[in-house]
Design a protein around this nucleic acid. Structure first.
Lengths: 208, 208
DNA sequence: CATAACCCGAACACTAGTGTTCGGATTATG
DNA sequence: CATAATCCGAACACTAGTGTTCGGGTTATG
């Protein structure tokens, strides 16, 4: 088993009280504060120390460690949390009644909005968790993309001459590329979404 | 001046002999061995220690440091070296007589071949030098892409509805995305080049 | 209001890497 | 073959981060 799996439970805290009772409210608050601070901290600087994150979260270093035993565990939890929120935000938009083209446009829009919150996490995640693990995390949301593409193909609205997995990857990487471009100031934030939509639609071969 | 510039001379060694004489041949050999070992080492594992690289290069740690004072200096030199080779390999293909479409196809082909050698360096470089510096390095080769795109637009063969810089970025990121896909085993190496070509041509709006 | 759960700072041991210095052994080069 | 350039291993000082332990304080919860 080459893939690193860890526990993969929900936002993984580590303390276990007496097996009967559940987590106390302040602990919950700490975890949230940490996850939140870690999100922005990792986004700003991939090198932040645990100490730094603890401080940013307004929490003792020991507390941090008591919830997330290692730096890697923490980042992984942040990813899980982010993807969960993202997945929720994407909603159940993929009702098979909406035309593929519009479904795609909506999906791009949502994804783009979400990415503006979580996108900066990507570089850090890549570096600490590695590309495979990051893709694993993205797998769930990417299924939606995949589904629409498959449907689009059946209906003959999306090109059929390229591997389906590749089209998904194109979606994924152009999305992130656009985020980086905006971040670098090479692409105006206002028009970015449109640019992205136009690009993706034509790349997927959606008939104009 | 926010951009980190360093010295940026040629493959920067650091020793200076008596100002008159030039570098000795064995020193040259060492530098080459180091650059070479560092290329693959950084490619395999972004975390390699200087010690590890020295060992891989069959060279003493001290020697390594005497040529490249810091880890960052080394990576930067590796990048410079790689880009130089790449740039040379790209040759002077952009004679304005070749039709845009074919010029593009050739450029994609060359870039792809080069990337299979140097592509694995990207993640490491991103992480240590940061996105900006990496783009700086790529600037030179990307000019060729830019040129063809500009020409293609003048001739009406390439789409005009998206920012030119964005098209360049699309080229850049899809190229690297494909490399990662192959690396991850999601895209068969044999067909990758074709897939990439098809994708890029249609994204740039080159008329079929 | 009792108590288990939790928070916290301080201190400690540990690790791994970085960058430097020293002195002696090699080796290219003229 | 003389000598300056280079290589090399060993040892050292330094840094920064990690993860743990301890003991006393605080607070949610039933």
């Amino acid at each position: 088993m080459p893939t690193t799996h860890k526990d993969a439970g929900a936002d993984s805290p580590v303390r276990n009280p007496s097996p009967g009772s559940r987590r106390r409210a302040d602990a919950e608050r700490s975890v949230t504060a940490i996850l939140d601070a870690a999100l922005t901290a990792f986004g700003e600087n991939p090198e932040v120390s645990m100490t730094g994150i603890a401080r940013a979260a307004g929490v003792g270093r020991v507390t941090l460690y008591s919830h997330f035993p290692s730096r890697e565990d923490l980042l992984d939890a942040v990813m899980t949390h982010a993807v969960q929120e993202a997945n929720a935000a994407l909603g159940a938009e993929s009702s098979p009644e909406i035309p593929v083209r519009e479904a795609l446009e909506m999906l791009i829009g949502s994804s783009w909005r979400i990415l503006s919150r979580y996108g900066r996490l990507q570089p850090t995640a890549l570096r600490i968790l590695g590309p495979e693990r990051v893709r694993e995390h993205h797998d769930q949301p990417l299924v939606r993309v995949r589904d629409i593409i498959v449907r689009g193909r059946r209906e003959g609205v999306i090109r059929d001459d390229l591997p389906e997995s590749w089209l998904v990857t194109v979606f994924y990487s152009l999305l992130h590329a656009a985020a980086l471009e905006v971040d670098a100031g090479r692409l105006p934030a206002e028009t970015a979404a449109d640019t992205l939509t136009t690009t993706l639609l034509s790349t997927l071969g959606v008939s104009t």
